[in-house]
Design a protein around this nucleic acid. Sequence first.
DNA 1: CAATTCTTTCAAAATATTTTGAAATTACAG
DNA 2: CTGTAATTTCAAAATATTTTGAAAGAATTG
Lengths: 166, 166
Amino acid sequence: MTFDEAKDKFIHTWGTLATQWGINRSMAQLHALLLIAPEPLATEDVMEQLQISRGNASMNLRDLMDWGLIYKQLKPGERREFFMAEKDIWKVARQVAKERRRREITPVVDVLNELKMISTDTPEAQEFQRVMEGLSSVVGFADSTLNAVIKAEENWLMSQFIKVFR
Amino acid sequence: MTFDEAKDKFIHTWGTLATQWGINRSMAQLHALLLIAPEPLATEDVMEQLQISRGNASMNLRDLMDWGLIYKQLKPGERREFFMAEKDIWKVARQVAKERRRREITPVVDVLNELKMISTDTPEAQEFQRVMEGLSSVVGFADSTLNAVIKAEENWLMSQFIKVFR
DNA sequence: CAATTCTTTCAAAATATTTTGAAATTACAG
DNA sequence: CTGTAATTTCAAAATATTTTGAAAGAATTG
């Protein structure tokens, strides 16, 4: 396989994969493209390389910035904006874990806690409460796993920080 | 909140949540409904309770069986099929972990391994390889986490098994 | 501040996914 | 084997999501 083939395959695969999670193809492909780009790219570059429209590029680049997965970079003497991906893959993982936790886990925890509160006067309601409690424990497990990723990396970051200053 | 309100809220919340993952609303709501049902339900029951069509019910019940999250149950003297959810929530979690691992992690691992193989004759290709290796390690982490869930529960299952026979 | 270049927005179009419902198939009882 | 009840299938319809592209908005330069 040539390098260009590998590049294409990576971008393509990442895009396909993303749709299985709730992420759209353009966003995933943009991220993939920027991940392997040795230099920051301008909007025009990504439009051309991925064959997508200006609006699409603009919106998804912004979303990627909201996720903290890419950064805007300004080049001196250049008017347009360039984008580069966070290359530290563990930082990317931490960022994704953080966002998914905030967007997906936290709301469920709240609803489950609310639903656990119903009175248990009938057998049916008792069964319901049992299920809610079970789900709470599973969601709690997922939550602490994500937290472990987030915290482990914060510690790692901290350790790097210490290295620099000792 | 009354029991019926709680029930509705649970089914509705579960359905909304599922769409954020790659799961469709009907499937999630079916699963939620069966999770809190004290008795196995027939196709007609779920059609009526969720207000969905026969075809929709049939297809999604089958998908849920493929995921190992619900079971068919035959009642003596009844011709139609009844469905009940796996109520052991940790078994559900294990099942989901297993399936997602198989469907999502394994294919990525394969592609990444293939892409790591390209020759590193240019700086660009070297960078590419570095990214692939980073991704490999993150995916490897996700893989072993899912495995931990799967194995932990198999051990738990084993311990229950032993309890019965000692 | 006027002209130019780049970015963002958003309604409409394109695409993808989900749902429906009727027809085909299957399973069973008599 | 026949009739009936239940389930599955799948093309078409409904819905939801994504993408486009042109217009509006910002930023920068001379």
